[in-house]
Simulated assay, not measured.
Amino acid sequence: MTAPHPSEKIEDIEIRLLLEALFLKYHYDFRNYAMASIKRRLKQAREQLGFATFSALQESLLHDPAMLPRLLGFLTVQVSEMFRDPTYFKAIREKVVPHLRTYPSLKVWIAGCSGGEELYSLAILFREEGLEDRTLFYATDINQDALNAAESGIFSLDRVPLFTENHRRSGGLSSLSDYYQAAYGRVSFDKSLRRNVVFSDHSLVTDAVFGEMHLISCRNVMIYFDRDLQDRALGLFKDSLARKGFLGLGAKESLRFSRHAGAFADFVREDRIYQRRDE
């Protein structure tokens, strides 16, 4: 095994100090994110923001409040799309929704909502299944710019063909074009899709349970966490779910190695949908 180059060791020290500074000054905690992922994102930030070293980036972060949102844009970036992994949404529609119909009111949490693609996917699905009026959606993220983008409901027009195909493959009961208006190279989704949505800043790393949910969808977020942080997030989801509530994870995520695995049963294993055990 080749020893790290001395400059790499120094970079790793700088990164840990930068993450510590970010936490101490702004209370954003990335210290237990997977190091390879965080290092890659910070290198992109350093290069694109024009800093020679991570220490220089840290100095700017500590003394220039305008640097915080710019840095968070790199640290929290997520590539998503509407109805991503269509079989997941088809399983929600065909296997989870029949259970949700039995409740007079519903709470759904989209954790790490990023630009809102998953939120609008679920809002449309719930409207098509006649559950929207009894559902309160919580869309959370640690990045305020991402929350603002989600709340705007505006996406580039060139992304829509993929969104439309995903919606069709997920078992959509209407045309996706029923839900948006297109103009000037962008589409704006109907404001009515947001009428039952609460947008809120929430960190899976530091914040606590804030309600009892019937469905939590947190997909392709925990792949950036180390094992301890994954366990913390899954414990938070466990404590946030109603008995027999549902948890949906990303295609590359699993409960298998978590200390909270026993609190969940496989519901649709191939699509990473789990059900809170009735304890």
Rank of each mutant, 00 (worst) to 15 (best):
L136K: 14
S177R: 15
S174Y: 12
G112F: 08
W109A: 00
R194Y: 01
N196W: 01
C113S: 06
T206P: 06
I110P: 03
P86D: 09
L204S: 02
L100N: 02
V79Y: 11
I110S: 02
Q78K: 14
S114M: 06
P86H: 13
T102N: 06
E94R: 10
A123P: 04
Y180F: 15
Y103H: 13
G112P: 08
V96N: 00
V198T: 11
V97W: 03
E117L: 07
C113G: 06
N166P: 08
L147Y: 07
R195P: 03
S192T: 15
D178F: 12
I110N: 02
S200T: 11
D201S: 13
S177N: 14
L119D: 00
D207S: 07
R186V: 15
V79K: 14
F199D: 02
S200C: 09
S105G: 06
F155Q: 08
G115Y: 07
E132T: 03
V97S: 01
S175R: 15
G115Q: 11
G130L: 08
Y184A: 14
Y184M: 12
S203K: 10
A182C: 10
A150Q: 09
I154K: 12
L204Q: 03
R194C: 00
S80V: 11
V160D: 08
G172C: 02
I142N: 04
T140C: 01
G171C: 05
G171P: 11
V160R: 12
W109C: 01
E165L: 12
S175K: 15
F189L: 09
N166K: 11
P104D: 12
P161K: 10
A182G: 10
G172P: 06
E165M: 09
P86E: 10
P104S: 10
Y88P: 04
N143H: 12
